[in-house]
Design a protein around this nucleic acid. Structure first.
Lengths: 209, 209
DNA sequence: CCAAAAGTGTTCTGACTACACCCATGC
DNA sequence: GCATGGGTGTAGTCAGAACACTTTTGG
């Protein structure tokens, strides 16, 4: 049986970590929410299939994408093993594409509940992996535009880890470890003084420390 | 096509990290060294297949076993995706079983060279993962008998990480983090005073810190 | 003048590093 | 008596955690 690929696509929406889910408007699983995924096309590699799914749902490429875990086949689906990936995208760049059969939507990870095919387990594994990676890599680069304020970056970290952090310690850490550097730009936002803009030192995955 | 499972089985032999390889005495790949692996049996899960392979080659069960990565199919092998696992066994408990088609042997990881099917890449990924896990988990429990001296444990760490460590710092760390505790026993070995024996605080995988 | 958000330093603590000698035993 | 290998303490450094006030700006 042909293997299937499933992608856990995370983004930050309204300061909440969210995952892209699809509501089935046709059988099997009508009315249920599931992760985007499907069978490999002939001649396609696993990663190519994951990229295809990611791009098909969000329109973005060149984001952080990592293989997660491989699950046993699910009975009665006609597919083989399920190779899962997780990806991180900037919500402002993503353009969801609803159609008649599939209704994609960002859903906050907190309080997800059960999904079709037990997919909530895959989301759980992905979340755990993401939290770990945040500590010792620069993966967050894939969740933000090229320029951002340190406060925005901190909100991303807090949304993922589910805890608040001290502003001064956070700044020291991300700058000191070389995760980000000043971009030279400034931003005026609302009723306060302009904020210094930052950019990631590297826009490819890097392990720190 | 049916998925295949491949297992990277590590052990410590003569203070050297070694991996179980099989020399093919039949086609395909006669004379080449490869990792143990094969096709899933009907109705079997991925992990069950990995356990079966592990037990078939070494006779041991209930050791550390973790899914590693899933690779794209290799052309002309008739198998589908390759789900790799890695395992850690105590060389003194393992009993290799040569037969006419397969000649299994422990081979030191240092200086392995190329293997059949590019399997050296899988060993490389497994080694990297093992080194990382050693830092923040108790996985070493699966490489040693129930009781051991701290010097023996240190030699295991050194063999895996490929670097020597300070004895006093090492002891402080493994005891302080609760990886091991005194078992109460003593061992006489050769021409020196008896050595205190230790055991792992947990013989199941635990994340520390 | 007030609300909103950015920016900034110091102290304490715990973990990790480097480093050298003594002692019990078996031969 | 000597070779073998187990066992032990201290000082320095660095990273992370806790903690509060000032400044600019727009309305």
């Amino acid at each position: 049986m042909s293997p299937a690929v499933v992608v856990v696509i995370f983004t930050i929406q309204h300061d909440a970590l969210s995952v892209l889910l699809i509501e089935r408007a046709a059988n099997p699983g009508t009315g249920q929410w599931a992760l985007p995924g499907g069978i490999l096309n002939p001649g396609e590699t696993l990663e190519e299939a994951a990229v295809r799914k990611l791009e098909g749902e969000t329109g973005v490429r060149d984001v952080y994408l990592e293989q997660l875990f491989t699950f046993d086949p699910i009975e009665n689906t006609g597919a083989g093993v399920i190779v899962s990936y997780f990806a991180l995208v900037d919500a402002n760049r993503a353009r969801l594409r609803p159609d008649l059969e599939w209704r994609p939507a960002w859903r906050p990870v907190r309080g997800l509940g059960e999904l079709a095919f037990g997919n909530e387990l895959i989301v759980g594994v992905a979340l755990e992996r993401l939290r770990n990676k945040l500590d010792y890599t620069n993966v967050a680069y894939s969740l933000l535009p090229a320029e951002f304020t340190l406060t925005e970056l901190q909100r991303v970290y807090e949304a993922i880890l589910g805890e608040t952090m001290d502003k001064r310690n956070f700044r020291r850490r991300v700058v000191g470890l070389g995760v980000v550097k000043e971009s030279g730009g400034w931003r005026k936002t609302g009723a306060h003084r302009p904020a210094r803009l930052y950019e990631f030192t590297s826009r490819a995955p890097v392990t720190l420390g």
